[in-house]
């Protein structure tokens, strides 16, 4: 279970990070802002360590699909969206992301265009016009 170990490792790392970063926090008389993150850090380190060394054998999730590149592309799309919104405006960016996502999933061009149009209408009609979300 490589994913389980990876997640455990992430938990472990974040636990250590919580301990390291909390030492730089301002001090109070008695326990202060560092107390709670340290408790959480300890839980994360202990649970992460155990799960990393002896992963639980739960029901194995479905085997590795071939869509790694699809997920990667989608993630890049999500990461690009905050750059798009201030430049293109909300409605065009949302439409672009929705349309491209549909394509990444393997849908045909006309349908992707339809999705983009639908999202554009929702974003523009409801959010920008009606609710006053800045475009």
């Amino acid at each position: 279970m490589v994913w389980e170990r990876l997640a455990a490792l992430l938990g472990l790392g974040l636990g250590v990070l919580a301990w390291v970063l909390s030492s730089g926090l301002p001090k109070a008389d008695g326990p202060g802002p560092e107390l709670f993150p340290r408790i959480l850090g300890t839980v994360l380190v202990l649970a992460g360590l155990y799960l990393f060394l002896a992963p639980a054998r739960g029901p194995n999730p479905a085997g590795e699909g071939s869509g790694g590149w699809k997920a990667g592309l989608l993630f890049l799309l999500f990461l690009a969206s905050p750059l798009l919104v201030p430049r293109l405006g909300l409605a065009p960016s949302a439409a672009l992301v929705a349309g491209l996502a549909t394509l990444v999933y393997g849908e045909t061009w006309p349908r992707a265009l339809l999705v983009a149009l639908g999202i554009w209408a929702l974003a523009y009609g409801v959010f920008v016009r009606l609710l006053g979300v800045p475009a």
Partner: peptide, 29 residues
């Protein structure tokens, strides 16, 4: 696939509309 595309669009709008802050899109990603 169409539904997934729609969900992508609606989620993006939703994340942005909470604070009207593009930064939140990084957090969500």
């Amino acid at each position: 696939k169409v539904l997934l595309g729609l969900i992508a669009g609606v989620s993006l709008i939703g994340v942005y509309a909470i604070n009207n802050n593009p930064f939140d899109l990084y957090v969500a990603a």
